[in-house]
Nucleic acid binder design. Structure first.
Lengths: 174, 174
DNA sequence: CTGCCTGCAAAGGATTTGCACTCAT
DNA sequence: ATGAGTGCAAATCCTTTGCAGGCAG
């Protein structure tokens, strides 16, 4: 049952943190983490449904229902994070213990980028092509400050993707 | 069929604009508009499901399926707007006249995005109490500019509610 | 050994669709 | 008159849940 697959450091780290927290490490959970990690590294954003499908390929013995339960429990335990996309879908990320990878650079590089890291990155989704783009959390700083200041609302930019139209689709549409 | 209900100016306006656009005014559509308008005026934010329930009370003869179809068609035609809440729900608003152009194009509806024109207000939703708060669109200006500048992404702040914690709930939770 | 996690299967429930008919225009 | 809009009901589809057994710790 122990495949020769070499898990990425991220998966390995998550697994040991899970053990440290008393969360059990099972084939099903490992499979889910692998799928999510793989997607993360490929800049893909997978829904529960798609994760289920990929797990079914990677580890056919893992039941769909288990995938859903695993996603829920690992999210609650803090090893996965979910981002709500406009519409009805929710995507999952492997939650980093702390330092965010350089993946954030892929998006915009604004003035004074860096510093206040905290949680992962934020997302925006193109209503035309459906693509989900990563956005450095710092881009939300102004909005966050303004909301906190104005109405006392503590914004959590990482949990929901905003909608809009990406560069390519704007070009296509004129 | 024609109740003595006095429609609000907004409903009346929407109905006449609909006729002007070639959209038919039917009991079902009127009922949906009434329900949404009523909710708007009460600062309520209704999902398709709840709208269906209220329409069932207000006009029992209107079938659920029709409510869904109506919500979809009127949204595409620009008479309703939908805001995606984090999670899985979508709420509806009565769309104000603002750009007449949108109405003209309504007849030739397509998968195209209608909301790109002047948007109303934005929303944030408290993950604790579920309350949806209105936010002045200008609060998003900095973020919008930054995204457009950085990655060419045209943000539409009005279509999705961001998540966070409201003042009251922060106080309660410490 | 203990009980958390899993597999299986069947239930659940919001939303959608085919089809024929009705009504708004 | 004409076809957009509707009613009805079955179908869909993702997701959840009850229960018994298995495996991690």
């Amino acid at each position: 049952m122990t495949e020769n697959v070499v898990d990425s450091p991220r998966v390995v780290g998550a697994l040991s943190r899970m053990r440290a927290c008393g969360e059990r490490v099972t084939p099903a959970r490992r499979a889910v983490l692998r799928v999510v990690d793989l997607a993360d590294r490929a800049d893909e954003h997978l829904t529960a449904e798609v994760i289920g499908a990929r797990v079914a390929e990677l580890a056919p013995s893992v039941h769909r229902a288990t995938v859903y339960r695993t996603l829920t429990s690992l999210t609650e335990a803090g090893f996965l994070s979910q981002v709500h996309l406009g519409g009805a879908s929710t995507i999952y990320h492997l939650e980093e213990p702390r330092a965010t990878a350089a993946a954030d650079r892929a998006a915009a590089s604004g003035p004074g980028t860096e510093g206040s890291c905290g949680t992962g990155h934020a997302h925006v989704r193109c209503v035309s092509c459906g693509r989900v783009l990563d956005v450095p959390p710092t881009a939300f700083d102004s909005l966050t400050a303004r909301l906190l200041d104005g109405i006392g609302f503590a914004l959590d930019p990482g949990r929901t993707a905003l909608l809009g139209t990406c560069r390519d689709c704007r070009a296509d549409a004129g």
